[in-house]
Amino acid sequence: MHLGNHADAEPFTTLDGSTIRELAGPVSLPTANQSLAEATIPVGGATTAHRHHVTEELYYVTHGRGRMRIEDEERDVRVGDCVVIPPGAAHKLTNTGDEELAILCCCAPPYADADTELLEDAAA
């Protein structure tokens, strides 16, 4: 059995600029086909627009609120919302609230910087 705890997960920053605590995957617990991480975005912050050519992602909002853009479509997201991001789809998440935005992000196959293509400057 492999067991991890959020409190033990070391935060790191991904290419898209979000702070990640991987709960299962290559950095933490061994997984074969997916990864699970908590990502946080500070008030007024946003991820850098990007796409993953191979990876499908699920974003599940656990705290705060934001604005999700996938390709040309934008929607407000809040606690309890789950967003499906298909492989190859350009996407960006912006914190539009007055508190930290937190999501659980499930990636299949597991998240990898090598599968991440940035679509704007990190400062954008």
Rank of each mutant, 00 (worst) to 15 (best):
A9Q: 05
P11K: 02
F12I: 05
T13E: 09
T13Q: 03
T13Y: 01
T14L: 00
L15R: 12
L15D: 08
D16G: 01
G17Y: 04
G17V: 14
T19S: 12
T19F: 06
I20E: 05
R21A: 09
R21S: 12
R21M: 07
R21Q: 15
E22Q: 14
L23R: 08
A24T: 01
A24Y: 02
A24N: 03
G25Y: 07
P26V: 01
Q34K: 03
Q34R: 01
L36Q: 01
L36H: 05
E38S: 14
E38H: 02
I41L: 11
V43A: 10
V43N: 10
G44R: 00
A46E: 10
T48P: 13
A49L: 15
H50M: 09
H50L: 07
R51N: 09
H52N: 09
H52K: 06
H53D: 13
H53N: 05
V54N: 12
V54W: 00
V54M: 10
T55R: 09
T55I: 11
E56Y: 02
E56C: 04
Y60S: 12
T62E: 13
T62D: 12
T62H: 07
T62W: 10
H63W: 01
H63A: 14
R65Y: 00
G66I: 02
G66P: 11
R69M: 13
R69K: 15
I70C: 08
E71Y: 04
D72K: 09
E73Y: 00
V77K: 00
V79A: 05
V79P: 04
D81E: 11
C82D: 04
V83M: 10
V84F: 15
I85C: 10
I85G: 05
P86S: 04
P86T: 03
P87F: 01
A89V: 08
H91M: 11
H91Y: 13
K92P: 08
L93G: 12
T94L: 08
N95E: 04
N95V: 03
T96H: 06
G97Y: 08
G97K: 02
G97R: 09
G97M: 06
E99W: 05
E99H: 06
E100K: 00
E100A: 06
A102S: 15
A102Y: 00
I103V: 15
I103G: 06
L104S: 04
L104G: 05
L104C: 05
C105P: 02
C107R: 01
C107A: 15
